[in-house]
């Protein structure tokens, strides 16, 4: 399937899903689905760097929060509409990724991983001390009264936007995966030195994939302030984003765009259920345990099983 066809299909599916689900009377569905979609974007974005290129980013929460707080900033400064926040947040997060990548991707991969973790804490402290965006107290972002497309509540709009953004993230990830660059990134993941000596401009490709990955993570966060009408640093920088965006691709499978999607939908749904029926601490424990179990026992994730099954069938 060519990129154009795939993009068209993804858009059509997203629009159809958005339209059909509007009929669901239960408001909780939208709240839960918004969170699952948020994870779809985060996991897909993380996988562009983590799965395709082999570099671990522990700072998903930082880039997510950059997206969210850019929205807050533009809201406070100009009462800018959501669309402005989405574009600006994506760009700012991409720039932050570019900067982090430029500074640390020359070093061994583990230093990038540690630096990404460090970035999350530095930004957290920065935001806590920055009163303009609410500081430690948090900030209110009022949902607009007028809701377009005749939707009953603002959450319906946020959910639909998130659905379209998830489709967009998948289209980007798949396009990168299938391109010449995707092959270059895979070569870097397998053996960076051999890749460089095969003509792959490794540093440039790494920085680019970091930038795209971080930009998409930022995009996921841009709608977040509107989601609860309120945002505070500890929720925007929650470690659960970092853990989930690593766990979901690992559990789904990191070799293709489908893995993070499957992982995010499965794990995201399970978490929504556990959160309601048991408690949120337990649901985090489940994510952690699943992450460790999969990474030790099934390193290729669910898609790894599917591939193995296909190969056996093909023989």
């Amino acid at each position: 399937m060519s990129n154009k066809v795939f993009a068209f299909v993804a858009l059509a599916v997203a629009l159809a899903l958005a339209a059909v689900t509007q009929l669901i009377p239960n408001e909780y569905f939208f709240t839960a689905a918004y969170t699952v979609l948020l994870f779809v974007i985060l996991a897909t974005a993380w996988n562009i760097l983590g799965g395709y290129t082999g570099y671990v980013n522990f700072g998903s929460a930082a880039f997510f929060a950059i997206g969210a707080y850019t929205t807050v900033f533009f809201y406070n400064a100009f009462k800018a509409p959501l669309a402005v926040g989405i574009v600006a947040g994506t760009l700012v997060a991409g720039l932050a990724g570019l900067g982090l990548g430029y500074l640390t991707l020359r070093l061994r991969g583990v230093f990038f991983a540690i630096a990404s973790l460090a970035l999350a804490v530095v930004l957290y402290v920065f935001v806590v001390n920055w009163d303009y965006v609410g500081g430690a107290r948090g900030a209110y972002v009022l949902q607009p009264r007028e809701i377009p497309f005749g939707m009953p509540r603002y959450i319906h709009l946020i959910y639909s936007v998130q659905l379209l953004m998830a489709a967009f993230a998948l289209v980007v990830a798949r396009a990168i995966e299938k391109s010449t660059m995707g092959r270059g990134l895979a070569a870097i993941r397998d053996d960076e030195l051999a890749a460089e000596c095969s003509g792959v401009p490794t540093l440039r490709l790494k920085i680019f994939s970091t930038m795209v990955s971080c930009a998409l993570m930022g995009m996921a966060g841009t709608t977040f302030p509107y989601y609860l009408s309120y945002i505070e640093p500890s929720s925007a920088f929650s470690l659960s984003y970092a853990v989930n965006s690593i766990a979901m691709p690992l559990i789904g499978g990191m070799m293709s765009w489908m893995g993070p999607l499957i992982g995010a939908v499965l794990l995201g749904t399970v978490q929504q259920v556990v959160q309601v029926t048991v408690s949120s601490a337990w649901n985090l424990l489940i994510v952690g345990v699943l992450l460790v179990l999969f990474v030790t026992l099934a390193p290729n994730g669910i898609m790894g099983w599917v591939d193995a099954w296909r190969r056996r069938k093909g023989r």
Partner: peptide, 20 residues
Amino acid sequence: QESLRGLAFFFGILFITEVA
């Protein structure tokens, strides 16, 4: 596989200990 999965493993251990 220490560079990617090993890191994720320790991250998982960190997280599990904290949540437990």
